[in-house]
Design a protein around this nucleic acid. Structure first.
Length: 442
RNA sequence: CGGAGCGUGGCGCAGCCUGGUAGCGCACUCGCCUGGGGGGCGAGGGGUCGGAGGUUCGAGUCCUCUCGCUCCGACCA
């Protein structure tokens, strides 16, 4: 993409009420624009990151055997009356009336709707287990939205739902998602620690939330530092291996890790002093096993092998996709701006032309741009005639992992300058060598 | 929901207390210079001061109402 044809409204100034660094950086880089309290437009740069995260989440859900679909944002109140949550959910639910006077709502989550889909088609235990998910906008009418997209009212969430014949089978499904989440966060370039959680309004008796450590986190976190070093299951993990699934969960739950809500001083005291970690965390995922909480009242049952109709055992699994954009920035920035993990960076590399008005330089840069694209790098090509300082500042600010800087002098020498954003390291080398180097580092 | 604030060119802010020609920085347009870390000089364009009502000879400024937004606390992907 040529910068002159792109829409990248970067600014120097940022509203003084943008309280946390990720929000400030998202505004400065023109990733989002606020349209109302907790409601944001995703501008091109931010939208690209959102889509990258969404795609990684999709790939990891699919790898774990979940099946993608899409449900609407607007739901009928009657469905929620069946589960009893229409009255229970409270003021956080945005309620709407259509022209016919029907009570509608903007979905804050989709347990009822997925249960309705399920019960409409699935009648036999032979069709189980089943795990369906979607990535759809949600609305929760928070009393106090804040921190930009980290706590918006409208937000993009991946929510998945598992259906099993028995509690034992449902627990395997739960563990499968547990392992899939570890891989997902690992690919997103962040460390998220699973912690025992209260099931909350979703209900159920088995629940973990995944917390990313960050100074601006809303929850206090207490953990054994060893849990941070347990590697993710890996992309070749066998999600059909029940023993391995249980082991992945045990590997982590053997260590103490809790948010302030669940914190147990006595248990924490058992952790060796050198490994006691007290930090702040951002909740980026939450998984629940809730048994028959929805299937019973809503009549979602299947026939078992004896012909008896039994309610299915359910679980639900959420990842805050739009929140992750902010959360990743919280974890990945320096004094010059964002430092994207390669997997979610809006572009792979920024190409900076030092003298776009110099014919030789322009031609050399154009050629480099084509070569980078041909090599498979999504490239942001700055061929504007801004001054060098402005270009460097802007590139650093938006935080692409690599910058290729080309000026007349380097061209004469037959080299380009490769800058690694994360380390600030610069190196002069031939374009082919730079491409090889970026491949090696990616 | 309790407490505290803020709405003034596209963005960030001052002006309000003590009423009297609407200002600064950035951005933008034009010209010249400059050219590897957000450059310089000069000349320009752009604002119903969130909205409504009131007080006043006169309201960005004072009063009332209203809408929107933010921050601190209790709650949440």
């Amino acid at each position: 993409m040529r910068l002159s044809q792109y829409f990248l409204p970067v600014t120097k100034d940022v509203p003084s009420d943008a309280a946390i660094v990720s929000h400030q950086l998202m505004l400065r880089t023109g990733m989002v624009r606020q349209n109302g309290a907790g409601i944001y437009s995703w501008l091109p740069l931010g939208f690209k990151v959102l889509k990258k995260i969404e795609q990684i989440v999709r790939e990891e859900m699919d790898r774990a055997g979940a099946v993608e679909m899409l449900m609407p944002t607007l739901q009928q109140a009657d469905l929620w009356r069946e589960s009893g949550r229409y009255d229970d959910y409270g003021e956080e639910m945005l309620r709407i009336t259509d022209r016919g006077g029907r009570d509608m709502l903007y979905g804050p989550t989709n347990e009822e709707m997925i249960t309705d889909v399920f019960r409409g088609y699935v009648k036999s235990y032979k069709q189980l287990p089943l795990n369906l998910y979607h990535q759809q906008w949600k609305f929760r009418d928070e009393v106090r939205p804040r921190f930009g997209v980290m706590r918006g009212r409208e937000f993009l969430m991946k929510d998945g739902y598992s259906f099993d014949l028995s509690e034992a089978a449902a627990r395997v499904s739960y563990q499968r998602m547990f392992a899939a989440y570890l891989n997902t966060f690992d690919r997103l370039g962040v460390t998220a620690i699973p912690m025992q959680a209260d099931p909350g309004p979703i209900g159920g008796d088995l629940s973990h939330e995944f917390l990313m450590l960050a100074e601006s986190g809303e929850s206090a976190v207490f953990c054994d530092s060893e849990v941070l070093d347990v590697p993710a299951p890996g992309l070749d993990f066998d999600f059909g291996d029940e023993a391995a699934l249980a082991a992945e969960m045990d590997k982590r739950t053997q260590y103490y890790a809790a948010t302030d809500e669940k914190h147990d001083e006595a248990a924490f005291a058992q952790v060796p002093d050198a490994r006691k970690t007290e930090a702040r965390g951002i909740e980026v995922g939450h998984i629940f096993y809730f048994g028959t909480k929805y299937s019973e009242p809503m009549g979602a049952g299947v026939q078992d092998s004896d012909g008896n109709v039994v309610p299915i055992h359910g679980g639900s699994y959420g990842i805050g996709v739009s929140r992750l954009v902010g959360a990743i920035i919280e974890a990945c920035h320096d004094e010059n701006g964002i430092v994207w993990p390669a997997s979610v960076s809006p572009f792979d590399v920024g190409l900076v032309s030092m003298r776009p008005k110099d014919e030789a330089c322009a031609a050399g840069c154009d050629a480099a741009y084509q070569a980078l694209k041909a090599a498979g790098f999504d490239t942001l090509y700055d061929e504007t005639d801004d001054r060098a300082g402005a270009k460097f500042g802007r590139m650093d600010l938006i935080g692409l992992p690599f910058q290729i800087i080309i000026g007349p002098k380097a061209l004469e020498k037959g080299v380009v300058e490769l800058k690694i954003r994360k380390t600030g390291e610069r190196e002069e080398l031939a374009l082919d060598a730079a491409i090889a180097r970026m491949r090696a580092l990616a």
